[in-house]
């Protein structure tokens, strides 16, 4: 018996370690689908999925769209600009109108923390959180977990340090939940002004200097420094940030063991990460992108369909394992 995921995927905080493992294990065979001559399986044929992106996104939106199309779902993209949202329509009204057109799933990206949960509680369709404010970005953390497992063969006991703007990062939050649930050791490292107070309560260690992080970790997950943070006065300047926290070749050369460097993108080369690191042998940044499609296929596949009331009827011969 597998651990079902429920109706929505809002964040990793609420998933059990078994549910997280189920998603990672399900993603494994989906990697192969993207290598086929015909990159498509009929698993979600007839399902309609709306990608509701209220915030700019390239990688995540395209990755979801590929995942949906490779599962044969029909997809519609809605961006905040150019839609009725600009005319003042509320989130729930937008979603209810979409639902009236008989959709099955909504993938939502929104600037407000809690938007995905809010929507999931109000519509019948499955809701997948593609990033909500500073709350969570579960599929990003799942693809990070899958990439770590691919590279190191395990997650339990692996030392992972998140470097950068922890305060504003939903990627950091989802990673901390996912990693700690699967038994990794987690540290965070960044400027004092970008470190949430009480972060230790989530079971992570705070490292003040990036050199300490490099000495301690097996994996560095370098977070994007959003340029708006400088304008808001969290850091003095981008150059200063790079000088103190930049992950550079010179710093990595002092690592006592083989180090894997990840980045959720989009990268600011020369701010949080040195170009030579991003393109160098430590980097698995493009593997993360490849794994993103497989993980999202797994999530959509696990959430979709499976009407429980029909399950019994289907437990005839065709559902048996030996036909």
């Amino acid at each position: 018996m597998t651990a079902a995921l429920g109706k929505d995927l809002i964040g990793l905080e609420r998933l059990s370690p078994d549910q997280i493992r189920l998603i990672l294990d399900t993603a494994e065979p989906f990697k192969e689908v993207s290598e086929r001559p015909i990159k498509k399986v009929p698993a979600l044929r007839g399902k309609t999925i709306v990608n509701l992106f209220f915030e700019a996104s390239t990688r995540t939106r395209i990755s979801f769209e590929f995942a949906e199309k490779r599962l044969s779902a029909d997809t519609v993209n809605v961006a905040a600009t150019g839609s009725a949202v600009q005319k003042g329509e509320t989130l729930v009204d937008t979603a209810k109108n979409l639902e009236a057109m008989r959709i099955d799933m909504v993938v939502i990206r929104h600037a407000s923390s809690g938007a995905a949960q809010f929507l999931g509680d109000r519509i019948r369709s499955n809701v997948v959180n593609a990033g909500d404010g500073k709350h969570e970005h579960p599929t990003q953390a799942l693809l990070d977990l899958l990439t770590i497992r691919d590279k190191l063969g395990r997650i339990e006991g692996v030392k992972v340090c998140l470097v950068g703007d922890i305060l504003h990062s939903r990627v950091a939050r989802s990673n901390i939940w996912g990693l700690t649930k699967l038994g990794a050791q987690v540290a965070v490292c960044g400027p004092h002004s970008l470190m949430p107070r009480g972060i230790e309560e989530l079971g992570v260690t705070v490292l003040r200097r990036v050199e300490e992080a490099i000495e301690w970790a097996d994996v560095l997950n370098v977070l994007r420094l959003q340029l708006e943070r400088m304008e808001a006065g969290f850091i003095p300047s981008l150059r200063e940030y790079y000088r103190v926290f930049g992950v550079t070749v010179e710093r990595l050369a002092k690592a006592p063991r083989a180090l894997t460097v990840m980045h959720p993108g989009p990268m600011n080369r020369g701010v949080e990460i040195d170009s030579r690191v991003a393109d160098g042998p430590h980097s698995v940044i493009l593997d993360q992108v490849t794994n993103g499609v497989a993980v999202r296929m797994a999530v959509l596949y696990l959430l979709a369909g499976g009407k429980p009331e029909l399950a019994d009827a289907a437990k005839g011969p065709a559902a048996g394992g030996t036909d």
Binding site: T2, P29, P42, Y301, G305, G306, A314, A318
Partner: peptide
């Protein structure tokens, strides 16, 4: 592994675990 091509995917309760598909070339 034929799981993703099953005609009862919309009805089965817990999703079946998917195995490996590996074919020797074209």
């Amino acid at each position: 592994d034929i799981t993703l091509y099953r005609d009862d995917l919309q009805t089965v309760g817990p999703k079946p675990v998917i195995g490996e598909t590996r074919l020797p070339g074209d």
